[in-house]
């Protein structure tokens, strides 16, 4: 299977600070890769480069073998790269359906007289939640939802287009154990749909539960990139902290 995303020699510096140094990473369709590392290791920077929020100082981003130069997140999104932010980027005062469609609302009407097509958005959102096997109801306010349901809203949003890659930034950082299981299920559904998933996480158990491969960043360089089957939580923890040099 050919890789959907290919990063080659990605470096990023902010002034004198080297956030990333020559990072390579490739991912195939339907593959779930865990991206791990300590705070400041460069995980977020790498993700923001993929999602078009930063441009790399050097190195290339290839999507389906084609070199991409995203200048803003909307360009990456159009190319099929969706990102679920750590804080989920939800508006608590709006319903689940409106959050799913925020910025990409469905409208009806003629010419400049256009009105929101709430019925269509509700229906489509309900469909997406059903696909994700989430109990989230499209009419409910996000304010009143559990952490797992909020994740479902943020993930449903990525399914509006036909995404190739979904980046998840610490989706299990701030939710209960039962909700973590829900979120991991959501990730499996994305995989089943042939979407490549990059899971940024601090939590080794989550990565081992759902990923096929793990890449570890330490101080801006990739120190490991290997199948889950060939490593152990102990080794990964050692790689993150530096107790294990590289693997």
């Amino acid at each position: 299977m050919t890789d959907v995303l290919q990063l080659t020699g990605i470096s990023k510096h902010f002034g004198a600070i080297e956030a990333l140094m020559g990072v390579d990473l490739a991912i195939a369709p339907g593959e779930v890769v865990g991206l791990m590392g300590d705070n400041g290791a460069g995980k977020s920077t790498l993700c923001r480069i993929i999602a078009g929020r930063f441009t790399p100082s050097t190195g290339t981003v290839r999507l389906d073998g084609k070199e991409m130069h995203f200048r803003r997140p909307s360009e990456a999104r159009e190319a099929g790269i969706e990102m679920v932010h750590q804080d989920l980027a939800l508006c608590d005062n709006l319903s689940a359906a409106l959050n799913v469609f925020l910025g990409r609302e469905l409208t009806m009407g003629v010419g400049p007289l256009r009105f929101l097509n709430k019925r269509a958005m509700q229906a489509k959102a309900a469909e997406l939640f059903a696909e994700l096997k989430s109990e989230t109801r499209p009419g409910d306010l996000v304010k009143q939802m559990s952490g797992g349901q909020r994740q479902a809203v943020a993930i449903a949003r990525t399914r509006l287009s036909e995404p190739r890659i979904v980046l998840l930034d610490e989706p299990t950082a701030a939710i209960s154990v039962r909700q973590v299981a829900e979120v991991l299920d959501l990730i499996r559904r994305l995989k089943d749909a042939g979407i490549a998933v990059i899971l940024i996480s601090h939590r080794t158990p989550d990565v081992f539960a759902v990923c096929e491969r793990v890449a570890v960043l330490r101080r801006g360089t990739k120190v490991a990139d290997k199948p889950i089957a060939e490593t152990s939580p102990e080794e990964v923890t050692g790689l993150i902290t530096g107790a294990v040099e590289s693997a």
Partner: peptide
């Protein structure tokens, strides 16, 4: 759409911005 964006901006401007 504009009305919805008014509510979204007041609800969470940063999130609204990230969603376009």
């Amino acid at each position: 759409r504009f009305g919805l964006h008014v509510y979204a901006t007041g609800g969470n401007a940063a999130a609204a911005e990230l969603n376009g």
